[in-house]
């Protein structure tokens, strides 16, 4: 997993946020673009089927715009703060429509080019197994792992997003991964 400490302490990001606080339109646009792929990937996985992930990200950024004066550089940093907002947006949609989008509904995508066909096939098969095992985890396990690997957040950042201590998040992650391994073994032997 990539370390996110660098992002948290990134002076460029801090400068952008500082400019954004002052109402700098270009800074806001850069922050939007900076966070967009990860916010979108998370929203795509978490939103109910009839909600637009792109709109959820726009909603998140618009709320961030409104609340920026209250943002403080502590705990998880700016990205964790944005994910915390997006998580609330997603929860509001889930409250309105309990049917979370099953992972299996997401389209299967081709393996990245560049490998031998046999390697691609093996990787695709392994990814398929992983996705199916992942889909059978509890929602809380999935959310935590999605924040880690789709949102690319550190355990400390995830702790900020979900309002828990970093140690508790690490422990929950270990248990979630243990459950994922167990589901994987079940899938492999099925």
């Amino acid at each position: 997993m990539p370390s996110n400490d660098a992002r948290h302490d990134d002076p460029h990001l801090r400068a952008l946020v500082q400019r954004a606080r002052a109402g700098d339109q270009a800074a806001w646009e850069l922050l939007y673009r900076h966070a967009y792929p990860r916010l979108l990937a998370y929203a795509r996985r978490r939103l109910p089927g009839d909600a637009s992930p792109e709109d959820a990200v726009l909603e998140t950024m618009t709320r961030a715009l409104e609340k920026i004066d209250r943002f403080r550089w502590r705990d998880g940093g700016f990205d964790a703060w944005l994910f915390g907002i997006l998580r609330l947006v997603v929860l509001e949609h889930q409250r309105a429509d309990r049917r979370a989008r099953p992972v299996a509904e997401l389209p299967e995508r081709a393996a990245p080019a560049g490998d031998e066909p046999a390697e691609q096939a093996l990787r695709a098969e392994r990814h398929g197994l992983l996705r199916r095992a992942f889909a059978r985890l509890s929602d809380s396990d999935r959310e935590l792992l999605e924040l880690r690997v789709v949102g690319e957040l550190s355990a400390e950042e995830v702790a900020t997003v979900v309002g828990r201590r970093a140690g508790a998040v690490r422990m929950a992650q270990t248990r979630a991964l243990d459950r994922l391994r167990a589901k994987l073994r079940e899938s492999e032997h099925a």
Binding site: R45, R126, H127, G128, L130, R131, F134, L145, V150
Partner: peptide, 8 residues
């Protein structure tokens, strides 16, 4: 898992 989930 990151690779598997990013793939879709």
């Amino acid at each position: 898992l990151a690779a598997a989930l990013r793939a879709d």
